[in-house]
Simulated assay, not measured.
Amino acid sequence: MPPKTQPVNGAAIKNAIEGRDGKMLASFYADDALVRVIDRNNPPSKPREIRGRAAISTFWDDICSRAMTHKVDTTIADGDNLAFTQACAYPDGTKVFCAAMLELKDGQIARQTVVQAWDE
C-alpha cells in the first residue's frame, strides 16, 4: 500500500493531475475503490469499471505516461464529495474534456465517476 502523503482535496488532485503524477493519484484511493468511466466507448448502461487501488494505479500510470497536457479547471468540494473538470490536449491538437465526481470515505476516494468526451 503506498503511503498516504497528503489529504485528498482539490489542490492535491490538481497538483497530481497537472504534474502527471500517477503514483500520487493512486495513493488517494481506498484499497477497494471503484472508478467508473462513461464515454463514447463506455455508455452509461455499460460503463468501464476499474476496481481496487492496484487497477486504478495502472489506469493512472497509463494516462500520466501519455504525451499530453492536463489542466484542472474547476474544483468543488461539499462534505465527502469532490467534483472537478479537466481539460486535456494531445500534441496533435486533439482535445479531451472530463468531469469527475468523487465520493470520499475516511479521507480517501471510495468511488469516482468520470464522464469524458474527446475530439474525433
Rank of each mutant, 00 (worst) to 15 (best):
A100K: 14
Y90G: 01
E120L: 04
E103H: 10
I109V: 06
I17L: 11
R40N: 07
I109A: 03
P2Y: 10
N9R: 04
T94V: 05
T85S: 13
M1G: 12
R111N: 11
E18Y: 02
Q6S: 10
D92C: 00
P43L: 05
D32Q: 08
Y90S: 11
W118V: 08
A11H: 09
N41K: 09
F97V: 14
Q116F: 08
M1Y: 13
K95C: 00
A99N: 12
A117D: 04
T113I: 09
P2E: 08
T94G: 01
N15L: 13
A100N: 14
D61G: 02
L34N: 08
P91A: 14
C98W: 06
I109N: 00
P7S: 07
T75G: 15
G107K: 06
T75R: 15
R53K: 00
Y90Q: 09
T94K: 05
E18W: 01
L25E: 07
D62Q: 11
P3D: 12
V115E: 12
I56C: 04
C88Y: 12
V35D: 03
G93C: 02
E49P: 02
G10N: 00
K23Y: 12
A99S: 14
R36T: 10
Q86C: 12
V35S: 04
A26G: 08
T75L: 06
D73E: 15
T69Y: 04
T5Q: 13
V37A: 07
